[in-house]
Design a protein around this nucleic acid. Structure first.
Length: 918
RNA sequence: GGGCCUCUAGCUCAGGUGGUUAGAGCGUACCCCUGAUAAGGGUAAGGUCUCUGGUUCGAGUCCAGAGAGGCCCA
């Protein structure tokens, strides 16, 4: 007789082999067809809301692991909130304007910028941006990310563009916008400014000269003293207004060919540029650079003074240690100029020719001016040394000519003015991890004013007019609102398509000269400004402002977190977020950043196609992601093993409830057997822990907590012990139905709790729960697990502890070869002080240990192995029993019933009931 | 060069306010089971807590330096 046919073995269609790459797309179809994301939203509509505001990725390529990490983490948070009952719509966004896409359009469609209209370039740039946002959308969906994919926000949407314009208007109204000269990269051949990304570095031959500036006052009681500077751009000397020195450093006065000069001491001994005088000069004096503060020197050929200022960037090993400073022609010079309130001179026009500001150079191109200036210096005796050097120098990416720094008018946001309220705002935000607060403060403290304008076409124009008569700029809130409402209907192309008068809705006069003829600003916004106002465009008036959480990579302290804070404080006076959470970078196995050039880049979609999205999701969720995450195929396999364990346990539970119907077999919690109560009490502790960890965004602890529960509690104890009941008891027996009742409860809770991470697997398992036991078609439409009150099981923990302690002792007996399994063994327990406890719980001990019998003796047996319970030694020994093995349940009994087969009394009853002995 | 961060067993992670033999899981080795079976149960071996100094009766835990790596700037 085949007795295995008479046992209730597990049965399920949930396969052991996951086959995620094949299965997951079907589950996505299921989610789409049943609109699960939207149904879950509707379910919680009336509840309290919690909003995670999506930071828009730039739409110029496929996603990388960083994108995948970011969106998966966001997805975990939003899914958890939703299961918890919060109303948490997730509106995904894309950053679409800006240089990278404009460049991509120009190269993809081979555009000659001088020959086509701005609107044409914009049209092509838009094509690229929309194309990649769609690609990324598809990839994010494949990762299992739930979002309102049908209504994302794109910064190129007219409504978003209008919000950008309104945000600018609001900031202007609050007094944070100003216009000022600032040096930018300038190509005099293309007659345009260039962004950093449009610069290529090439070797260039330049003059290298050392020039003297005579001090205008006595220093150290010395007359006729000169400061020496070194430059490779003589043409910038007309714009010189200062000489920078390194603070708190040693400088010297030297005598060379009868004249006295100041240079840095280190430069004097080491700098290549001072070699010519080193052997034929002597040091007269030694002093600290700080004594130079506020001294002045005469410009070598203009009637002007140049002031000494400190600057940390001064290099003491190159040049003279005194740096010629022209704020109109260099970025560092500009910052120094701003700091010390120096004039920003830029006497060079857009073609690279000198303006009338400098008489003797007027109309001369800077290349020719170099020679003229050197001649003048020589004539005046200010040129000490002249040669040529070849060095790396920025060139234009289009025409390949050298570029210059040229000051032009730019729009700024006055960050300096709001710094105090920015710092206060930082204090109001909760930062995860907590050091984020410190980092953000430091960065804000050091941040200069924000240059908002770009000389480009793919973006949103700056809504400003200029008076044709006097050149005054018109920043008028009323006008800006009118422009915004036009853009909201027609899109920002309208600025390039229509005449000025189209935007002026009522009579407008220049506040300065009364003129009524205007022209449009040509510059567009820095794309950072566009994403910086997403809280204004997406949250305000829609989802609620401020929102609960921003969640991005740690690079965004400098980026989105900071610029969003600035615009929010500028517009509203408070931050756009209550909490900020950051993650690290995804690195390779050696902990190095992934770079194409290193060949160590892993494509997230490759992982999805080989392992499945759930594996990637579990990988990120089980990593301490506030640090950098190392990623390799090897470590992926570790997660795969973890996944298998979780999956198999789920499968085993599914298999054991195949004939269970909750409607028929609902069990009162108080009636449950002790083991069931114990397991549930552990389960409720788990629910608490899981909530605690997710609320703190410590996903790895949340995942490990569940995993440990599965390994230590479910698999190792409960399910292992209960196999006997589940398989061999009468299928309708209370013991079996009670076990199934608990297994169903735990299974459902686990699937719900794991859903934020293992969405695909949990959904697939959910579909395999026998139908009448579930109330919704999707796991995601469930609510977070509820806890019941369980009492009176604490004593059982002592038995479990005893079991864990005794296992190594059993192993010893097993290794002696006399016994092989606990089933065939007797357990003898010797204890005087705990005699009653063990005697009373003999049955539970027998069940847990799976031994054939337990004997408890009220005595100490000091020659045996022992374990310590409640500070008392409990002595134990195992012995092979002389009991007989039941052929059906494989347990051992003193006596068996003997028909054709030998079975125990319990199995006999079961067999009789199912008609085996009819 | 500056700001912020990381560094605990082969791997992924735990280790409030400093205090007995530094904990899990995976992996490895070995054993058991063969009615969760390309599964299940168990035992064991793995760590001078990156390094060097210091404070302390006592430091993975505090302080100072160094090294390696990351992000953001210059």
């Amino acid at each position: 007789m085949d007795l295995s046919k008479t046992v209730n073995l597990p049965k399920t269609d949930f396969p052991m082999k996951a086959n995620l790459p094949i299965v997951e797309p079907n589950i996505i179809d299921f989610w789409n067809e049943n609109r699960i994301y939207y149904k879950a939203l509707t379910k919680n509509k009336a509840n309290k809301s919690r909003i995670l505001h999506d930071g828009p990725p730039y739409s110029n390529g496929k996603i990388h692991l960083g994108h995948a990490l970011n969106k998966i983490l966001k997805d975990i948070v939003v899914k958890y909130w939703t299961l918890k009952g919060f109303y948490s719509p997730f509106i995904p966004g894309w950053d679409t304007h800006g240089l990278p896409n404009e460049k991509a359009a120009i190269s993809t469609y081979n555009i000659d910028r001088k020959k086509v209209s701005e609107v044409y370039i914009r049209e092509k740039s838009k094509e690229i941006a929309v194309y990649y946002s769609e690609i990324q959308k598809g990839q994010f969906k494949r990762l299992g990310v739930f979002a309102d994919w049908e209504n994302p926000y794109l910064t190129l949407n007219p409504s978003y563009e209008a919000a950008i314009i309104r945000a600018f208007g609001s900031l202007a109204k609050n007094g944070y916008i100003y216009r000022e000269l600032k040096p930018v990269y300038w190509c005099y051949d293309c007659e345009t400014s260039l962004a950093d990304a449009e610069i290529e570095y090439k070797e260039k031959k330049s003059p290298s000269i050392v020039v003297s500036f005579e001090l205008s006052t006595k220093f150290k009681d010395l007359d006729n003293l000169y400061a020496l500077i070194w430059t490779t751009t003589p043409w910038t000397l007309p714009a010189n207004v200062a000489i920078a020195y390194k603070p708190n450093s040693s400088y010297v006065i030297i005598e060379y060919q009868g004249k006295k000069y100041i240079v840095a001491k280190e430069a004097y001994f080491n700098a290549e540029q001072l070699k010519f005088l080193r052997d034929s000069s002597v040091i007269l004096a030694d002093f600290t650079s700080d004594e130079l503060l506020n001294l002045t020197a005469k410009h070598p050929f203009l009637n002007r003074l140049s002031i000494f200022v400190p600057a940390d960037y001064v290099d003491l090993n190159n040049g003279t240690g005194l740096v010629h400073t022209a704020p109109g022609h260099g970025y560092e010079d500009y910052l120094t100029g701003k700091k010390y309130d120096l004039p920003i001179l830029s006497p060079v026009d857009k073609e690279g020719k000198f303006t009338e500001e400098i008489d003797f150079l007027k109309g001369l191109h800077i290349d020719k001016a170099n020679d003229v200036i050197i001649e003048v210096l020589e004539k005046n005796g200010n040129l000490l040394f002249k040669s040529f050097i070849t060095h790396s120098y920025p060139h234009c990416w289009r025409c390949h000519n050298p570029v210059i720094f040229r000051a032009t008018y730019q729009w700024f946001l006055d960050v300096e003015k709001m710094k105090e309220s920015l710092i206060n705002s930082v204090n109001k935000v909760e930062w995860f991890p907590s050091w984020g607060e410190e980092r953000m403060k430091k960065m804000i403290e050091n941040r200069p004013d924000w240059c908002l304008s770009r000389q480009r076409v793919w973006g949103v124009f700056i809504p400003v007019l200029f008076c044709k008569n006097c050149g005054e700029s018109i920043v008028d809130p009323d006008l800006i609102e009118n422009i915004a409402s036009i853009v909201e209907k027609e899109g920002s192309d309208v600025w390039w398509e229509k005449e000025v008068k189209y935007f002026i809705h009522k009579s407008l006069h220049c506040p300065k000269c009364g003129g009524s003829e205007f022209e449009k600003e040509k510059d567009i916004f820095d794309v950072w400004f566009e994403s910086a106002v997403s809280h204004f465009a997406v949250l305000y008036n829609n989802l609620g402002h401020p929102c609960e959480l921003y969640l991005e990579g740690a690079d965004q302290y400098r980026g989105w977190f900071q610029v969003s804070l600035i615009t929010s404080v500028g517009i509203f006076g408070y931050p756009p977020y209550n909490k900020v959470l950051t993650h690290g970078w995804v690195l390779d196995q050696e902990g190095r950043a992934m770079h194409k050039s290193l060949g160590n880049v892993i494509d997230p979609m490759e992982i999805v196609e080989e392992y499945g999205a759930d594996i990637l999701r579990l990988y990120f969720a089980s990593s301490e992601y506030t640090n950098d995450i190392k990623m390799s195929k090897n470590t992926l396999n570790v997660v795969v093993e973890m996944y298998k364990k979780i999956r198999n346990t789920i499968r085993f539970m599914l298999g054991n409830i195949h004939d269970f119907d909750i409607n028929q077999w609902k069990v009162n919690f108080n009636d449950l057997p002790v083991l069931e109560k114990y397991i549930l009490s552990k389960h409720y502790q788990l629910i608490d822990k899981v909530e605690e960890y997710i609320e703190k965004f410590e996903f790895h602890r949340y995942v490990y907590e569940i995993y440990d529960y599965i390994v230590h509690i479910l698999s190792a104890i409960y399910l292992d012990v209960r196999k006997d009941v589940l398989y061999t008891f009468d299928k309708d027996s209370f013991e079996r139905r009670a076990a199934q009742f608990v297994i169903l409860k735990i299974l459902k809770d686990l699937l719900i709790m794991l859903f934020p991470v293992l969405s695909f697997t949990c959904e697939q398992a959910w579909k395999n729960i026998p139908l009448h036991n579930v109330s919704s078609v999707s796991c995601y439409l469930q609510s977070w697990p509820q806890k019941d009150k369980i009492t009176d099981v604490e004593f059982y923990q002592k038995i479990v502890d005893f079991y864990k302690e005794v296992l190594p002792i059993f192993e010893k007996y097993k290794n002696s070869g006399l016994i092989k399994t606990t089933n065939e063994s007797l357990l003898k327990i010797y204890t005087d002080q705990n005699y009653r406890f063990f005697e009373e719980n003999k049955k539970l001990i027998k069940e847990l240990f799976k031994v054939s019998d337990v004997f408890v003796f009220n005595e100490q047996k000091n020659d045996l192995d022992y374990v310590v319970i409640d500070n008392n030694n409990i002595f134990v020994e195992f012995e092979k029993s002389n009991y007989h093995k039941c052929e059906r349940c494989w347990n051992y009994y003193p006596e068996l019933k003997d028909y054709n087969i030998k079975v125990c009394g319990r199995c006999f009853d079961v067999l009789q009931k199912i008609g085996m002995f009819a």
